[in-house]
């Protein structure tokens, strides 16, 4: 077995108290592939992504990032929580983009991008700003480098957040509904940046309600409901030939809403 997926999820379970939110999820994301996760509200998409980043700790199953177990260590066959240091190390190849951008409002667009370069990679201000400007240019934000988030549109803020993650040179990018907090006219500019990334071979996991984007860009579409993967396959399979009643219903309500 030479070959390892970038992200490998095996039998993942997650409970919040009595609520069994993830019920045995399996997922493999190969290098340079784009996996889109769709499903109704509350089906566990965000929780899956958060567990895949260990922002929420999972209860059962395993998450491997480039072959390394994330969040736990095995000691004598028993599983113990890993140290923050190791978690940071395994996680360092993941870039994450959130629904609400989560920019730091007291830092400029450039400051948001350079922060981790300075603090984590310990680059000099000049090196960090050079990379920062380059990355901002990539998302079409170089002219806003000195603007604070409050002065940016939602689309600009999300592109800023994408640049912030990209500057750390991740091997895989997670997106949790990156456009669902945006005004409709601003969705396109963010999707464009994401599509460009996918075109450059970035490995991506995208939770999204943008079916058009999923149909266009995804290599694999995963449909979740009530904490389980109900169907998965190529965009054509999932969108044109749904096999399950639940997926058909989901697609119908979505079509009814967008018409």
């Amino acid at each position: 077995m030479e070959h390892k997926p970038v992200v490998l999820v095996e039998g993942l379970h997650k409970r919040f108290g009595a609520a069994h939110v993830l019920r045995g999820i399996d997922l493999a994301v190969e290098s340079s592939r784009v996996v889109c996760v769709i499903g109704p509200s509350g089906s566990g998409k965000s929780t899956l992504l958060r567990c895949m980043a260990f922002l929420d700790r999972y209860d059962e199953g395993r998450v491997f990032i480039e072959g390394r177990l994330l969040g736990y260590r095995e000691v004598d066959g028993r599983r113990v929580p890993d140290s923050d240091r190791n978690i940071d190390s395994v996680r360092s190849v993941i870039g994450m983009v959130f629904q609400h951008y989560n920019l730091w409002p007291h830092k400029t667009a450039l400051g948001n991008v350079t922060e981790a370069l300075r603090v984590v990679k310990r680059l000099s201000r000049r090196e960090a700003e050079a990379i920062g400007m380059e990355t901002l240019a990539k998302v079409g934000m170089e002219e806003k480098a000195n603007a604070y988030p409050a002065r940016l549109s939602g689309g600009q803020q999300q592109r800023n957040a994408i640049a912030r993650a990209l500057a750390m040179r991740p091997h895989v990018m997670y997106f949790d509904e990156p456009t669902s907090a945006l005004d409709p006219e601003l969705v396109g500019e963010v999707l464009e940046v994401m599509q460009e990334l996918a075109g450059e071979g970035m490995t991506m996991v995208v939770v999204t309600h943008e079916m058009g984007f999923a149909a266009h860009v995804a290599d694999e579409v995963v449909f979740m409901d009530e904490g389980e993967v109900i169907e998965r396959g190529s965009p054509d399979d999932v969108f044109k030939r749904p096999r399950s009643e639940r997926l058909r219903e989901f697609l119908d309500t979505w079509r009814a809403r967008t018409i």
Binding site: D84, N102, W104, H106, E115
Partner: peptide
Amino acid sequence: RPGQVEAARMLGIGMPAIRVRILIPQ
């Protein structure tokens, strides 16, 4: 918002730096 801390953690920024550079100034 806790999301600001999560974003920082995903970038590998440690808790002491998060406090000093992100939480306390705001």
